[in-house]
Simulated assay, not measured.
Amino acid sequence: MTVSDPVVESIVATISRSATEIRQGLIGRRSTVDEENPSGETQVEADIWADELLGDRLRAIDGVGQYASEERAEVDDCGDDPATSGSFAVAVDPLDGSSNLKSNNAMGTVFGVYDDALPARGDALVTAGYILYGPITTMVLATEETVSEYELTGGERTVVETDLTLPDDPVVYGFGGRVPDWPEDFQAYAREIESELKLRYGGAMIGDVNQVLTYGGIFGYPGLESRPEGKLRLQFEGNPIGYIVERAGGRSSDGSQSLLSVEPTELHDRTPVHVGNADLIERLEDRLA
């Protein structure tokens, strides 16, 4: 599958070609640095390196008006305003799950291409995707028409599936956050789900969401008693993942509405994130209501 807009296709091609280099570049960059990202999380060397690599390459594309990253405090203006000019804004989580580097577990890269200035609602996305650095490097890419999966090697994309949809019969679930910190209504919902589905939770959202897309089910990082807004960032994680899952026939929710309908106020806004089969999300919203 190719993306119809040449600028958007150039963005996707640049990210996919960079994936092999990013994966190889993780070697020797597993240590933490004496810095925090704008959300107050400890960075590892690979976070900063991957952000600089993707930022330099994406900002150089003619038609990219803004670049934003989970690792940067502000939006980088690199062209015309996407809100008025027809250019695009790219929001990236360069290394989702980088805390998994220490234990050498799965992680990924998440990106969204918006046709509006950041911060933007998820319904302004025209394309979103993620790269999973697992045993095989793969990319899941969603457009307005379909969701496709690729294997990435040597800078090339090989199509695995061109019309990826969630299986009708859900199998797996994964919920983030410390259980004692879950609100009571979410705890009650989780008790129901754990009696029906198999637990699959690896500490990197990308890996857990990919399990849901492969086998059907639900992933959630709820609002917590200590942090009602949740942990995940709307622009860099919630919106792109919500877009992908909805295009694959599932649903996304912040607990009461589609993630794509959430009005952002700041670039690094957090949000509860729940994605998966529609009936499981509907049950969740009923429980939280």
Rank of each mutant, 00 (worst) to 15 (best):
M1K: 05
P6D: 14
V8R: 10
A13P: 06
T14I: 05
S18V: 12
S18Y: 07
E36R: 15
E41V: 15
E41R: 13
T42R: 10
T42I: 15
T42A: 15
Q43T: 03
A46G: 11
W49A: 14
R57W: 10
L58E: 11
L58K: 09
G65P: 03
Q66L: 07
Y67G: 14
A68K: 10
S69L: 08
E70P: 10
E71W: 14
D77T: 06
C78S: 09
D81N: 15
D81Y: 14
S85T: 12
G86I: 04
V90I: 06
A91E: 03
P94I: 00
L95R: 06
D96I: 01
G97A: 00
N105S: 13
F111D: 09
V113Q: 00
D115K: 07
D116C: 10
L118R: 00
P119Q: 08
A124Y: 01
V126M: 01
I131E: 10
L132Q: 01
G134V: 04
I136H: 04
I136L: 14
T137K: 05
T137C: 03
T138W: 01
T138N: 04
V140L: 11
T146F: 04
V147G: 10
E151K: 12
T153F: 15
G154W: 09
G155S: 01
G155D: 10
G155H: 01
T158D: 02
V160G: 05
V160F: 00
E161W: 04
L166P: 08
D168M: 07
D169Q: 12
F175Y: 14
G176Y: 02
G176K: 03
G177P: 04
R178F: 09
R178H: 06
V179C: 13
D185C: 14
Q187W: 13
R191K: 06
E194I: 11
E194C: 02
K198I: 13
G202T: 13
G203E: 07
M205D: 12
D208G: 14
N210Y: 00
I218K: 07
I218E: 03
I218R: 03
I218L: 09
P222G: 09
E229S: 12
E229N: 12
L232N: 13
L234R: 04
F236L: 09
F236H: 14
G238W: 13
G238R: 09
N239L: 12
P240M: 13
P240S: 06
P240K: 14
P240V: 15
V245R: 12
A248K: 15
A248R: 11
A248L: 09
S252E: 05
S252V: 08
D254W: 01
S256F: 01
S256C: 04
S258T: 15
V262T: 01
V262G: 02
E263W: 05
P264C: 00
L267G: 07
H268F: 06
D269S: 07
D269V: 04
P272H: 08
P272R: 13
H274P: 05
G276R: 05
G276Y: 10
N277L: 05
N277A: 12
A278R: 14
D279K: 15
I281N: 05
D286R: 13
R287D: 02
